[in-house]
Design a binder for these strands. Structure first.
Length: 315
DNA sequence: ATAACGGACGTGACCACAAATTAGG
DNA sequence: TGCCTAATTTGTGGTCACGTCCGTT
């Protein structure tokens, strides 16, 4: 089943800007696009059918929507997830519908905007009051920001930021076409199919360590039953211990933007459980045993006079 | 200026049980 | 190594109790 508390490092990058994670797949263009690129490109081609990206692998167009899991899945992930056990097989799934024009991944858009502005201004360095802006961070957030911070102005001046706008892409790394070399060629995904990013993670170096993440094909994220996230790294993986100024800037900006756009509303991971909870009997808001609740119902109705009406027992 | 009071608001605990996950054979 | 079964854990929503904040007296 799907877990929402783990990090998916496998998200496919946008085919247009090569920086942000893709959010949609355009069937007409046969291209994966982030929210901002999708909005820009399809402003003139609004008739293109687009679908979301699979929430499990984030690297293939969604083909089905699982009502029980409230998740859009590609055919491969759907087959894998829903063949796991007889119960999963019973999940109701419907073909994914093309999204109307106007969809945009706000987070990607805002993040790109911030990055573009920074680069346009020709200065990717943190502002003088850089740290002051984080005085309101939670301690653990601050630790995450502090971890691995190493500002290297020389590298910045040498033009390592001269890549596509809104990108922290390291042009010294040759991009890998996952679609051709991985997914379609039978690339095996991690055993734990995950599809969302926990806000507890804080800064998740999605685009920042894109170069390194491209080399991290063997890494496996694991979430144990207490919710602790463990990252297993193979010896071949290069960890981003020293971040470039651009990488650092991108991380900071992404974090700031994410903090702004944090959504505190409750997220439902299992729609089936929600549906069941809504139908369950209650006594003063608490879940009640079916037999007990039935007895209470009988008691309530037996205590009402024959002509009593308008009283709705709260179960 | 300070204390007391009360209303508004926010937060966490509680409950049962299907579903998901893990452990062991 | 893979399969099966049993045991354990997770997640779900409405209500209540409690604490905090703020305005009024």
């Amino acid at each position: 089943m799907l877990k929402s508390e783990t990090v998916n490092k496998w998200a496919r990058s946008c085919d247009a800007c090569r920086s942000a994670a893709s959010a949609v797949y355009c069937r007409a263009d046969q291209a994966y696009l982030c929210g901002s690129c999708d909005a820009r490109i399809h402003e003139a081609a609004s008739q293109h059918d687009r679908v979301g990206v699979c929430e499990a692998c984030e690297r293939a167009p969604a083909a089905l929507v699982c009502k029980a899991d409230s998740a859009s899945l590609c055919e491969a992930c759907d087959a894998e997830i829903h063949s796991a056990n007889p119960l999963a097989c019973r999940h109701h799934r419907v073909p994914v519908q093309p999204m109307p024009y106007g969809y945009s991944d706000e987070e990607d858009e805002a993040g790109s905007w911030l990055l573009m502005n920074t680069i346009r201004n020709g200065d990717a360095r943190p502002p003088p009051s850089f740290l002051d802006e984080y005085l309101d961070l939670e301690l653990e957030d601050y630790n995450e920001l502090s971890e691995g911070y190493s500002y290297n102005n020389e590298q910045h001046q040498q033009g390592h930021c001269g890549v596509a706008a809104g990108s922290s892409y390291d042009d010294s790394i040759v991009p890998v076409d996952y679609h051709n070399k991985g997914y379609e060629a039978g690339y095996t995904y991690p055993a734990s199919l995950t599809h969302t990013v926990s806000t507890d993670i804080g800064i998740v170096p999605e685009s920042t360590s894109e170069a390194s993440s491209m080399k991290c094909e063997a890494s496996v994220s694991h979430c144990d039953k207490r919710g602790t996230i463990e990252l297993f790294t193979s010896p071949l993986i290069e960890a981003p211990t020293q971040l470039s100024p651009m990488d650092r800037e991108a991380r900071v900006l992404r974090y700031k933007e994410k903090k702004k756009t944090r959504k505190f509303e409750k997220t439902i991971r299992y729609a089936s459980r929600k549906a069941y909870a809504e139908t369950r009997p209650r006594i003063k808001g608490r879940f009640a045993k079916r037999k007990t609740s039935q007895g209470q119902v009988d008691q309530i109705f037996s205590s009402q006079p024959d002509n009593a009406y308008g009283v709705v027992p709260s179960f």
